[in-house]
Nucleic acid binder design. Structure first.
Lengths: 349, 349
DNA sequence: GGGATTCCCGGTAACGTTTGCGGAATATTA
DNA sequence: TAATATTCCGCAAACGTTACCGGGAATCCC
C-alpha cells in the first residue's frame, strides 16, 4: 500500500546527474551515447525496474497501441473464441485489446464506436449487431483514418479487410445433407437480412433446394432477432399450419440451442419429428441430446486472421491498402440430430 | 481516409482567439468564465465534435480509467459470463477493461500482471490460474498501490476484496443429493489444492460424506489440471480397480464436460453406471445428453460485484479499505445425469 | 599547433490537458 | 474621484517522453 510513484526517466537522470535526454537516448538509439554511460543508465534502470510510461509515449507518438473490438455478446461461444484468437495475435505483437458489446443493439454499437474513437484506438475489429442496417458510424471511423476489419457479420457496403467463413458452401452442404437424409421440408432460421452472412447462407440453402428440385417456400425462411420468446412464437407458428416442416437449418449457434429448447417443450423429437442442423464451434455440441449436427467454423482462426489483417493495416498505415476478404473453410460435423431415423446410431461421437 | 487530426482545445482557442486555459475552463469550472464566452466555446466545441484526449488526461491526472482483468481462458463459459458482468459495470462508470488470459499458466499470469502494471491500469480483477501457488506477483501489485479484487479462484494468502460463491455449501448439497439418490461411491474431480475454492468444495464434499457415515477415500479425490488426455487417464484409472465409483462430482464446468466425453468413450452410461454432477452456469447444460445436474453459479453477478468492489477501491483510494468477501449463493439444478435409475424422467427440463 | 571533425551530451520544444498565479479591465464603495 | 473589490482571462508549469538543435571538449589531420 506504499503508493509509490512509478520511477521515471527523470529519476534516473537525477541519480546519475545526467539530463533526461541522455537517459532517454541511452535507453534507445545507443550510438550517440558513450558505452560507459549507456551501461550505467541501463543498469540503474534495471535496478529501479524502470518501465516507460505508455501513456506519455502514446501522447508523444500519437499511438495508443490499443485496438478496439465490438462484438454482439462476449458470453457467447463464437464471440469468446474469436476474441481469444484476436487477443492471441495482439498480445504477441505488443497491442492490447479493449472489448465492447453491442448486445445486438444498433444504438449501443454506435455509442461504442464513439467511445472507442474518443479513446484513440488505433483500429477497430467488429462483428455487426443484428439490428444494424445503417453503417454511417463505421464510415465515420474510416473517415477519421481509423482502420476497420470486419468479421463474421460483415457488410458489403463497407470496403475493408474482412474475415468470414465460406457461408454459402457451409449452408449448401448442410442443406444437401438434410435432403440426402430424406428431409425435404426444411426451414431456414436465420438473422437479419441486412447482413451479408445471412444472404450467403440463404443462397446456399436455396441453391441446394433448387438442385434437388425442392420448391422453396417463403414462409420457411424466418428472420429472427435474439428474443427467445419471439423465436419460440415463430417456431410454434411453423408447426401450426397444415404442412409442417421436418427439418430446421439454424443459421447461428444460439438460434439452434433455443430451437432445441422450444422443440423439446413442444414434445417434438429430434430427429424423429424434426431434424436440426446449426452453425457452431462449441466443443460440447456433440454432447447435446441429441448430438447436434453443425457447420463448424474455425473461430480461433477467424480471430487470429482478423487481428493479423488489422495489424498490417495499422503498421503500414500510409501505404494504400489492397483490401481483401479472407474466407475460411467450414466442415460439416454430422451428428445424431440430422440422421435419418431408423439408421443405426453407433459411432455417434 | 482523410487522416484528419483530432480536434484539440488548442484549435478551439485559435479560432476563437482565446487562450487554451480559457477554453479548458469554459469546458469545466464554468464560474470563472463569462457566460457569453462559455457559450461560444461550448458551441464551437460541439460543432467541431471536440472530445478531450483521454491520453493527455491520463498523463495529467495519472489516471488511466482502465482496469485490467486476468482470467484463465476467455473462451470458457464461466469466464466469458463473468467478464460480461465486469464490462457491464465498468462501462456504465466510464472505465474500460483490458482482458488478459493466463491460459492456466503461472508464468503467463506473472507476465500479464507486469504488462498490466506497465500499462498503468488502475486496478486488477483476477481469477488465478490452476498452476499458481506463489503470489508474489499479486503482492507486488498491491505493494505498488494498485488495488486488486479476486473472484472465483481466490486465495486466503491475499487480503483484499473477493467475490466467490458459497462453494462449501454448493459442494455439500451436490454430494448430499448424490447420496440421497443412492450414489454412495462418489469421486471428487477437482483442481489445484492451492486454491481456496478447491479447499472449500472439498470440505463440502467431505462433510456430506461424513454426515451420512460414508467413508472417504483418498484415491477418490483427484486434483486435475486441464489437459484432456491426463484427465482421461485419471478417470480410466478410477474405473480400473476392483471397487469402482458410481458417481462423480466435478468441481468445474470443463472438468464435467471432459468427463462426459471420457465416460462415453468408455461406454459407461450416465447415470446408469455413473452419476455426474458439475459446477456450471452454462445455459445449454440441460440440453446435454443426459442433461447435466449442476451447481449453478451466478456468473454475471459475480462479475458485477467484482467490478463494483473494484470501483469503490479505486475511487476511495485514500480511505483505508475494509476488505470483504462477497459470497453469492448457488442453486442445485437437478437434471437427469444424477437421478436414480428407474425413476421416471419426466419433466427433465 | 591550429583548424576541422568527431564524440558526447544538455537545453528545449512538443504531444493535449489542467491549474495556480497574476494582471488588466471593469464595477463598487467611501 | 480615488481607492478598493470583483470579474474575466492569459501565462506558464506540469504530467513523461522523444527528437531537433546546438555546443563544449577531445581527437584528428597536415
Amino acid at each position: 500500500m506504499s503508493e509509490q510513484h512509478n520511477v521515471t526517466i527523470k529519476d534516473i537522470a537525477q541519480k546519475l546527474k545526467l539530463s533526461v535526454s541522455t537517459v532517454s537516448r541511452a535507453l534507445r538509439d545507443s550510438t550517440e551515447i558513450k558505452p560507459a554511460t549507456r551501461q550505467l543508465v541501463r543498469e540503474l534502470a534495471a535496478e529501479l525496474r524502470y518501465s516507460p510510461n505508455p501513456i506519455a509515449l502514446s501522447l508523444k507518438e500519437k499511438k495508443s497501441k490499443i485496438i478496439g473490438v465490438i462484438v454482439p455478446e462476449i458470453a457467447n461461444n463464437f464471440c469468446a473464441a474469436t476474441i481469444a484468437g484476436i487477443e492471441d495475435i495482439a498480445y504477441s505483437r505488443g497491442y492490447h485489446v479493449i472489448i465492447f458489446q453491442s448486445h445486438e443493439k444498433f444504438e449501443r454499437e454506435v455509442i461504442n464506436t464513439q467511445l472507442l474513437t474518443s479513446r484513440r484506438i488505433e483500429g477497430l475489429i467488429i462483428s455487426l449487431s443484428n439490428e444494424t442496417t445503417s453503417l454511417t458510424h463505421i464510415h465515420e471511423m474510416i473517415g477519421k483514418g481509423i482502420p476497420v476489419v470486419m468479421f463474421d457479420r460483415v457488410s458489403d457496403e463497407i470496403t475493408t479487410h474482412k474475415v468470414v467463413v465460406n457461408d454459402y458452401y457451409g449452408a449448401y452442404k448442410a442443406t444437401e445433407h438434410l435432403i440426402q437424409e430424406g428431409f425435404h421440408d426444411i426451414v431456414h432460421l436465420t438473422i437479419s437480412p441486412f447482413l451479408s452472412i445471412t444472404q450467403k447462407r440463404l443462397n446456399g440453402y436455396c441453391d441446394a433446394l433448387r438442385k434437388y428440385n425442392i420448391p422453396q417456400k417463403k414462409e420457411w425462411i424466418v428472420h429472427c432477432n435474439f428474443d427467445a420468446a419471439e423465436i419460440e412464437r415463430s417456431i410454434r407458428r411453423l408447426f401450426s399450419g397444415p404442412d409442417k416442416p421436418n427439418a430446421i437449418l439454424a443459421s447461428v449457434e444460439r438460434l439452434a440451442t433455443i430451437c432445441m429448447n422450444v422443440l423439446r417443450d413442444m414434445n417434438l423429437r429430434i430427429p424423429d419429428d424434426v431434424a436440426l442442423v446449426g452453425f457452431s464451434d462449441n466443443p460440447i455440441s456433440h454432447l447435446l441430446s441429441p448430438a447436434l449436427t453443425s457447420v463448424r467454423q474455425p473461430t480461433f482462426d477467424i480471430g487470429q486472421q482478423a487481428a493479423e489483417l488489422m495489424l498490417n493495416l495499422i503498421e503500414n498505415k500510409h501505404a494504400v491498402p489492397k483490401f481483401r476478404t479472407v474466407q475460411l473453410e467450414t466442415a460439416l460435423d454430422i451428428q445424431a440430430s440430422s440422421r435419418r431415423v431408423g439408421v443405426l446410431q453407433e459411432g455417434s461421437r
